[in-house]
Amino acid sequence: MNTALRTSLILCFAIYFFANLMSCTDGRFKQGKVLYEYHCASCHMEDGTGLAELYPPVNGSDYLMNNREKLPYIMRYGIEGPLTVNGLEFDIPMSGIPELSAVEISNITNYILSAWTNKLGTMSFEEVMESLNSNPAGINN
């Protein structure tokens, strides 16, 4: 009986330990997550899957994978379609969010790049500034 009790106690501690560990990795881009959910999730959804052929996904999106560097720019200045994402064509204009600071954009960017199934690395603040100051080809606004 004692052994059983001891085993379950150890098990409990193990679960507790791993749960804590998980929550640590979860919180890596905490501000980015909060801002994403406030500014982006209405259309792109909390799980980044978008909506049908109305709003493109940002989770597992080939467009994002191939145009990583445009992401901060699109957040600030918006984008007009048509835009092909994962073989579907999207044509609803997205307006930019001018009230976001460069730091906030950087946090949202890094959240999106690593959230859900995305494994698109990270973007340094310099890279974010470069994007914001660029005029990426293929973006008309």
Binding site: A41, S42, C43, M45, L51, A52, L54, Y55, S95
Partner: peptide, 13 residues
């Protein structure tokens, strides 16, 4: 609608 409509539509879907 840029606010709650798309989320509601996702659920309607």
């Amino acid at each position: 609608c840029p606010s709650i409509c798309p989320k509601v539509k996702k659920q309607m879907l």
